[in-house]
Nucleic acid binder design. Structure first.
Lengths: 341, 341
DNA sequence: TTGAAAGCGGTACCAC
DNA sequence: GTGGTACCGCTTTCAA
């Protein structure tokens, strides 16, 4: 490799100007498309050639310092929940980042450590002076942290998943509805002794608690219906135990497809027939869950379209007269299959 | 909410200085722990109080502009492959980001769009002037893009997954070995007519091709062994078709656990007994794959420890006399279960 | 013990 | 058409 490339320091707009024999101002105009009617075609060519030859890449920090805004959109993800995210969310993020680029933003994923206070986390985000922050699921977002972000110039703070903290906008995934839909499905098919799986894995409480609440709400409408929380760790041992203690139940909401799959196998191994003895419902509508015998009934959540969210972010960033509030609300729908027939 | 918080512009170190009645230099010393023996305790307290009251958060761009380096580590992920990443990789990333923080870096995930040239992608990364770039799996990394990054001041360019491009360091996941291990396992149990699943989903070619190669290499050592590529889309229809065309095979490497699960169900529906008629091997050792009947044999890959990689990154960033080369190589191991008994 | 000031890289106003 | 230059926020040297 070319040694000089590593020893020379990075080319700046000044080096380009020198190389092309023009001023820094001219370089800036040309390289930002502001040259129309200002710089001659010949000069433009010279500048572009020089930039090309030197391998010039503008310095985002310098630009954002001057312009007052980094085009950064921070997608905050709680570090300890990441592994639990399925393809649904991953796909959303991928498309969201692409959509953001069309508006001139750079979408970047930032893991939020669980061992930090919401304030410290917010400060870490704020240092980057993002145009917007999208706090997904369990990423901590309190009134304080929203305040910190706003004070330091973040134009829009969005909460993706849970109901928004004061001052933040919301794209809410109604977890309660997921539980309610699952329970209602089981109840309407005549099941009355329900169980609701509560994953023991860290970071999932913020999902499982409202799902349980939703299921309870649904159960309240059916006289005689009972509802048992089933703490379940994501291991075969735990599933075997739960399968035993759940023997008297005739309907179980398995939190999501993966936990439901785990439990399904354990129930079958314990001699329980699904769905005859116990009906089972998952959530997320994963393809693999459809492959089981019996095929798993699942609650499907429809996330908002990535480009809609990107458009919203842009609108919020450019127009700060928009009041905080819930902008999107996801919907949940039952996908009935063999496991709850 | 306090209206003034939104209308005032973000507090700077100058506002803190004014508020505390000291100079900006003093503020900088105090807030960066360089105050020992320079600033009186009383002044330090004043400054800290002022910063606290104003909700001051330093401006990362300004700092990195001055200091010459953003503590950013870019973890580049190809946007179109994200959905295919399993918990293995997600866990790695989460811990890697945490480990980076201990060295003072900020690890950030950046999706690389597939519809851009490697050079454009590299330029987009280079604008952020990251200290290091970790290009994972299919994220494009060519000699050119490495060059662009180095020229613009990136201290370390690492390739995570595929063999490194010229000039980059490598943490290589030997995909060939995965295929070889799977095939060797099938062959050593007496199977001779092998099939290797080739996912049709976009972005997986860079994994599936070397896995096929590895399987072929292994098969070459067994006289009489044949090897058939099995193109498979991640749908039930495709799986049903493949199950028919694979009827004459007695051993199949299903690319990974998810494709193998898909195929397993299709094979069973087509009347094929697994493992009697056809043995099946997956990869990634997912928990759910262990729950199937029969339990799925799988190739387990051991990724490097996140903190080791973080330490490596730090070493490469601080010491640029280290020559590019492969630093870690992952290992693959067969986990025999019922599906290949 | 504290402060003044230069300068990091880029932008954009204003003068020529 | 082109160039000089002030300024964005922060760090750090040097002087007081």
């Amino acid at each position: 490799m070319n040694d000089s490339a590593h020893n020379e320091s990075a080319p700046t707009s000044a080096s380009v100007a020198r190389h092309a024999g023009v001023s820094r101002a001219t370089v800036s105009y040309v390289l930002n498309g502001q040259a129309a009617g200002k710089v001659s075609a010949a000069t433009q060519a010279k500048v572009k050639k020089a930039a090309q030859e030197l391998g010039y890449v503008p310095h985002a920090a310098a630009r954002s310092l001057r312009s007052g805004s980094s085009g950064l959109v921070l997608i905050a993800v709680p570090a300890d929940t990441v592994p639990a995210f399925g393809p649904l969310f991953a796909t959303f993020v991928a498309h969201f980042q692409t959509a953001l680029e069309k508006y001139g933003y750079t979408g970047v994923l930032h893991g939020a450590r669980a061992d930090r206070s919401p304030q410290d986390t917010a400060r870490a985000w704020a240092e980057l002076r993002p145009a917007a922050v999208l706090a997904t699921f369990g990423a901590p977002l309190t009134r304080d942290s929203v305040e910190i972000l706003h004070r330091s110039g973040t134009r829009a703070v969005l909460s993706f998943g849970p109901p928004p903290a004061p001052g933040a906008h919301g794209i809410t995934m109604d977890q309660e509805e997921i539980g309610a839909v699952a329970a209602a499905h089981l109840l309407s098919s005549g099941r009355r002794s329900l169980g609701v799986v509560i994953p023991q894995e860290h970071g999932l409480d913020s999902f499982s608690a409202p799902r349980l609440t939703g299921a309870q709400r649904a159960a309240a409408a059916f006289p005689g219906a009972t509802l048992t929380p089933l703490p379940l760790a994501y291991t075969e041992e735990s599933a075997a135990q739960v399968a035993v203690s759940a023997a008297h139940l005739d309907g179980i909401f398995g939190y999501n497809d993966e936990y439901a799959m785990l439990l399904l196998r354990a129930l079958q191994d314990a001699g329980t027939d699904v769905p005859r003895d116990t009906a089972l419902v998952g959530a997320d509508d994963l393809l693999i869950a459809r492959l089981l015998r019996p095929r798993l009934t699942s609650v499907r959540t429809r996330l908002p379209e990535p480009h809609e969210v990107a458009a919203l972010v842009d609108r919020l960033v450019t127009d700060d007269s928009i009041r905080p509030g819930v902008r999107f609300r996801s919907t949940a729908q039952i996908e009935p299959r063999e496991s709850s027939a």
